[in-house]
Design a protein around this nucleic acid. Structure first.
Length: 270
DNA sequence: CCGCCGCCCTGCTTGC
DNA sequence: TGCAAGCAGGGCGGCG
């Protein structure tokens, strides 16, 4: 599942490889994955555009076009964005392809078809629903404390809520809670200020460490060149049910919280 | 505004 | 061993 560090890694790769390229042709094999504003034809609107930037917002890839329009790509669980050299055969589940004038292409593949590539207008408030960027200066411990105050929601569910913090998914929510020694089910308002500060720091730290290792490849994630990340080798709890906690040695357990698999240590997460 | 639920899909795991 | 059923999961729309 591509979360913030995985999307950041993809975006860095794309920024180097497709910026400045001009889109010659768009192939759409699965129409529901390509979304455009009412009355706008996706293929016609995108054809002839030049890529001016590639950025990230939360878990979204934002491809800036010269006209000011943008392509917002949501990879969901199994989506991939890979740049392919001219003549390369279609990769599995390649449903949308942006062919550039040099013959290379950006392939958007997704086995589960949950991913979307959305064309938005220059002035469209496409990210109004997204919360603070956790690696920006706006994500301060004080702001995080305010975010949690009075909320009865389990802290893990709050971490996953994109309207509050953008980019955190199941892997990094689990890892950050382990790092801060906090039980995933703790009501947000029950956390002490020192605990919230620990969680803030653990979250920032785990996201930065993962970016440095080019993300976590547990399922389908690969970067823009098709390479796996490295963070799956250093995960502390995610997907590690039954193995020993690195801190106390007791078995990591898997429970379900907010309809999500949740991995944690019953002994050292309080 | 808030929170919960069902849905979208298909590869993989489970169980008989 | 083989096959079918069920699970997993991010985000969104609907609902209370």
């Amino acid at each position: 599942m591509p979360e913030l560090p995985e999307v950041e890694t993809i975006v860095r790769g794309l920024a180097r490889s497709i910026c400045g390229k001009t889109i010659a042709k768009v192939a759409i094999g699965l129409p529901k994955m390509a979304v455009a504003p009412a009355g706008v034809n996706f293929q016609r609107a995108v054809r002839g555009e030049r890529i001016s930037s590639v950025r990230r917002r939360g878990k979204l890839t934002v491809i800036g076009l010269e006209s000011g329009r943008r392509l917002i790509v949501s990879l969901r669980m199994t989506g991939r964005l890979v740049v392919l050299r001219p003549g390369r055969a279609a990769i599995p589940y390649e449903h949308i392809s942006l062919f550039f004038t040099d013959g290379s292409r950006l392939a958007f593949a997704d086995s589960r078809q949950f991913g979307r590539m959305r064309l938005v207008e220059r002035d469209e408030a496409w990210d109004a629903h997204l919360g603070v960027e956790p690696l920006s200066g706006d994500f301060t411990p004080e702001r995080f404390i305010g975010m949690l105050s009075g909320r009865t929601t389990p802290i893990k569910a709050l971490l996953l809520d994109q309207r509050r913090i953008a980019g955190v998914g199941n892997i990094y929510a689990c890892e950050a809670l382990w790092g801060a020694r906090i039980r995933p089910g703790t009501p947000a308002k029950a956390l002490t200020k020192p605990a919230i500060r620990r969680l803030h720091d653990a979250l920032v730290e785990v996201l930065q460490r993962s970016i440095a290792m080019r993300g976590t490849s547990v399922d389908d994630y690969v970067d823009a060149r098709g390479r796996q990340g490295g963070f799956q080798n250093v995960l502390s709890v995610y997907g590690r049910a039954g193995s020993g906690c690195e801190r106390c040695g007791r078995a990591i357990v898997r429970t379900v919280l907010a309809q999500r698999g949740t991995w944690w240590c019953r002994t050292c997460q309080r």
